[in-house]
């Protein structure tokens, strides 16, 4: 089989696993998919999310590995009121395309994420930009940018789940 298709299948497996762990609130296992120097970003809607930098533009989420760990710790507490009780979450990931860029595997995919809790059900639409690296024969995520293909975060109010 074509090498790129094989690579895409491996990446799809990783992205589907990530989506499944997030849907089931297995956040420690989710964190274990990421490298020790990983980043997780969500840019706002009025910048070009594919190219904007969190060092020069205000984002919604600018997490380095330390803050990703803290985010998971926080979401495990009763005091994370927005997610207590927890919302129902469903990630759909599709249109996955991959390419090699030196040692980095770049994946672009489309997502729709639903967050449902008491009176509301909101959907986040956008695309993921994953940077993936080979580690010990497996794949790990070094960076995930969630670019919202939305004009504003309305009526959502919050990104209290992990996209």
């Amino acid at each position: 089989m074509d090498e790129n298709i094989l690579l895409r299948l491996r990446v799809e497996d990783l992205l589907y696993l990530e989506a499944d762990l997030l849907d089931r609130w297995q956040l420690d296992a989710w964190l274990a998919l990421y490298t020790g120097d990983a980043h997780y970003f969500v840019p706002p809607s009025d910048v070009d999310g594919d190219t904007a930098s969190p060092e020069t533009s205000l984002f919604y989420i600018i997490d380095d590995r330390v803050r990703m760990e803290q985010r998971v710790i926080r979401l495990g507490k009763v005091g994370a009121h927005s997610e207590h009780p927890r919302s129902k979450v469903r990630h759909l990931v599709s249109n996955v395309r991959v390419s090699r860029d030196g040692t980095i595997i770049r994946a672009r995919s489309s997502f729709a994420v639903w967050r449902s809790k008491d009176i509301t059900s909101d959907v986040f639409i956008g695309h993921y930009l994953h940077e993936i690296v080979e580690r010990d024969g497996g794949l790990m995520i070094a960076k995930k940018t969630c670019v919202l293909d939305m004009e504003a975060l309305r009526p959502h109010a919050r990104i209290s789940i992990i996209l």
């Binding site: 706002p44 809607s45 904007a52 020069t56 533009s57 205000l58 009526p155 959502h156 109010a157 919050r158």
Partner: peptide
């Protein structure tokens, strides 16, 4: 004003 606007809402 730094570029990038947080545009959201509340119910």
């Amino acid at each position: 004003i730094v570029g990038g606007t947080q545009e959201y809402s509340m119910r």
